[in-house]
Design a protein around this nucleic acid. Sequence first.
DNA 1: GTCATCATGTAAGCCGTTACATGATTGC
DNA 2: GCAATCATGTAACGGCTTACATGATGAC
Lengths: 207, 207
Amino acid sequence: MDTVLDIAILGLLMDRDHHGYEIRTQLRDRLGVWANVSFGSIYPALARLERLGLVEAVAVADARTLSSLSTGSLSGERAALRSRRTSSGLGRRGRKVYSITERGRAEFVAMLANPATVDDSKNFSLRMALARYLTPPRRVALLERRRADLVERLDEVRAGSNNELLDEYARGVMDHAAKGVELDLAWIDNLLTAERSNQQSLAHEAT
Amino acid sequence: MDTVLDIAILGLLMDRDHHGYEIRTQLRDRLGVWANVSFGSIYPALARLERLGLVEAVAVADARTLSSLSTGSLSGERAALRSRRTSSGLGRRGRKVYSITERGRAEFVAMLANPATVDDSKNFSLRMALARYLTPPRRVALLERRRADLVERLDEVRAGSNNELLDEYARGVMDHAAKGVELDLAWIDNLLTAERSNQQSLAHEAT
DNA sequence: GTCATCATGTAAGCCGTTACATGATTGC
DNA sequence: GCAATCATGTAACGGCTTACATGATGAC
């Protein structure tokens, strides 16, 4: 359960309804992590999420109109879609449009906030791209977890780049890796200070 | 055939003989790309490489002495090992020490030079860590291939970081990704100029 | 009417993981 | 003698890919 793709798909559906084919491009354009996930991953994932009751297929009145209807009152749009729900969910053109359920929303936020799986950079980037769905404390928790991982990793690669036994090329790779981790760390630290000053200004307003 | 792990293992064996258990730590310390590859990957990989005739098990006279015998005359060491080759390859303590074959050496260099699979960062880092086994032109070819990929990728993430439709967090991720790619590009460019000035100085010496 | 694109799905396979099973060697 | 560690292997499974199979829609 808790896979990267699941989170990504649910994250897209938090914003608005999508059909499978569309999810691929959205994954690239809005979450930017991968270069085109294959349909062989997307369709089975959607089927599984539907079985779990986290998403459901909805009927589409007019597909063209719907897909341009990305903004506007979120709750109003959701209510409208719920009213034209069917068992098949197949629009007149064979497109199967999915909507996230209430349970799906709850599960999504829980998955997103789970700090256990921020280990690799892709996982973390995806979560940050969806960070607006997290409460400030959850965001900070994720950032701090990631920071700790990076500090550990930095020690490892620095040891490598100082290892005299390694040849020029291997050491160069380690050295570059260290620079990459340093860049990541600087980013995290920026985000953390932004997060904290934001919380402070909110606290200030409240006085 | 041509998997990352195969190249990594053959790369380690180019330097000196290893047994499976040892390969895991070497992978971390000398090629630095992963945090501990599992034995469930390493042993089957070695078995496969042996079936393919790219590596072979060698008998160990004294395991302790051998493992500290990492430097010195390479050809001499190789000849000595070849002379105590057995069918089992099991030393008295159950360690199975592998040696790369001539065919293995040839295959390794071919795999390493193959530019088709420099697409992801791990693959490329591994190849650079082993770059001393490549001829200068091969190294340049790999670097240029990687450079082209990165330029393409940079366009994508820059498009994302300039996309007004994305929220603050998603744009931040894209922006950071762009900085990462820029860092990679700068590294590649450094390596390329170093490679070229080196070739020039060699050409100069030849005059 | 036919071609490109949109659209959904299944099957096989790849490459890696964790969990399990087993045993030798060394240090205390 | 007993624990830690070194050492090798198998089995099951996970998540993703490519290749395959199918069909609707829109542009010309």
